[in-house]
Nucleic acid binder design. Sequence first.
DNA 1: GGAATAGTCTGTGAAGCACCAACTATTTAT
DNA 2: ATAAATAGTTGGTGCTTCACAGACTATTCC
Lengths: 159, 159
Amino acid sequence: MSAPPLDSSEHRSGALLDHLARRMRLRSESVLAPLGLRPRHLVALTVLRAGGGTGQQALATILEMDSTNIVGLLNDLEAKQLIERRRSPEDRRRHVVELTEYGAKRLNEAECALASAEDEVLAALDSAERETLYELLSRASTATAINCTEAICDTDDTC
Amino acid sequence: MSAPPLDSSEHRSGALLDHLARRMRLRSESVLAPLGLRPRHLVALTVLRAGGGTGQQALATILEMDSTNIVGLLNDLEAKQLIERRRSPEDRRRHVVELTEYGAKRLNEAECALASAEDEVLAALDSAERETLYELLSRASTATAINCTEAICDTDDTC
DNA sequence: GGAATAGTCTGTGAAGCACCAACTATTTAT
DNA sequence: ATAAATAGTTGGTGCTTCACAGACTATTCC
């Protein structure tokens, strides 16, 4: 009876994701602070780099944050000239947000600065494994982004 | 100095980790709420399952949380009988924390309930890839745990 | 003109969490 | 045996993140 009828081979990564993200975030904070950035700024920049040219509404959906709070976040980034808000020519209500060249550069710098943090947190993984991890995370992240931009993801609960 | 010898092909997963963890956490919260649990409870339980029998001090190190806040967290879990605190026979100052059988069961249930959340967030990955992801996250997580349990991780900053 | 949409600004409140201080129980060092 | 260090507990304070609400402007669509 201790063997449940669900295939326990299906491991859930949620908690692990949470745990590692926290470990990384704690280290990132101190590394990023001198650059005047915070972890969530990095997340936004990363998303922007992956699929730039989004409106703020779409960005709110992707980041799953309230749009009113997106404003402040973007204000920070714009003040640092890391991003630009331009009005969309097609729909002038829309602010198209894009990473500036300078922003891309700073993002790269920041990522470099995070190398040692990542080394600590992902110490158990060799560089090939880290690349695999990156690839998987990256695919999951951008795919959901696209998925959510064009249509709200429908829940398929067959548990 | 300012140009370290790292290749830019080394992608940083920090932000992606953060992003996906957030997406997952948001979904988890609503799923877990009826069970009276919160994401961080799940994290603690998961860590405990992976490397049970730790003292609270060690747990604080692994979770990278302040030990005073660990107390409250464990109080919650103990009140729900998901964990047990027993005094260590060797060092009676120590409270050895362990997942109860009931706790393990509930953890499994909770994880099952999170399946659909994970399906949403990791929609872009097939089941083999998810397993790979789990394996990588798991290794990274437990390795650091072990590393931190037996000896305080020394920071090796050679960036 | 009126309704809906995108963005902005301000403020409120809840939650997570680090940090401090004081206290008990126990071990270790002198 | 006494002092110092360690593990845990409790209570309190304050900061940060964030969701949510309300009011407002600019723009598009009907």
